[in-house]
Amino acid sequence: MSEAPMPLWEVFIRNRSGLPHKHAGSVHAADAAMALQAARDVYTRRGEAVSIWVVPSGAITASDPADKAELFEPTGSKIYRHPTFYEVPDEVGHM
């Protein structure tokens, strides 16, 4: 077993609802064209997608789990960034 490893690609698909591309999983393929083909076969067998992106896995830079608190906790106390922080009298109606 000394077969060369097949490159890994991350697959993102966009569904009909118009939401952004979302990570669906990964595939192994020799090049981008074959990765697209494999992604179509593996992740869109039931009309899940109107568009696919494939990205070489190595091209993704991810945040370190150890930095989670430093990166994401500060927003926890910033409740004034949410609409519910502000009071609007009922008589004014929906805003």
Partner: peptide, 19 residues
């Protein structure tokens, strides 16, 4: 076949290659 491939991909995240 698809299920096999999703699962291989999940196992690969633990550090074992597909090969």
């Amino acid at each position: 076949a698809g299920h096999g491939l999703y699962l291989y991909a999940a196992a690969e995240t633990l550090g074992l290659s597909r090969e």
